[in-house]
Amino acid sequence: MRLTCPLCGTRDRREFYYSGSEDYLNRPAEGAPIEAWDDMLHLRTNPAGVTKDLWYHETGCGSWLLVTRNTITHAVLATELVAARKGGAA
């Protein structure tokens, strides 16, 4: 599998560190109930199909990427910089 980093171009999967689902971006507000934290940290939709997850370009530019890909075919559909999203970095 190869991922296209918006800054570095198409790179080998081994340059990237997989963190997990995009749920990690939905950090609850201060004082949110424990269920909200459980939801972000542990519970997952875990789709068989298109998913969005976070990858860190560890041996490249050091950016966090939000990758849209298919968990059945391993096709990578889109990549974007987390920092460039509305609301900025996680």
């Binding site: 689902s21 875990n46 789709p47």
Partner: peptide, 18 residues
């Protein structure tokens, strides 16, 4: 490995990633 899909039929979201 398919636990998330089956549990989703019962409206559940599991602490599982496949």
């Amino acid at each position: 490995g398919r636990s998330s899909q089956v549990a989703a039929m019962a409206g559940m979201r599991l602490p599982i990633e496949s």
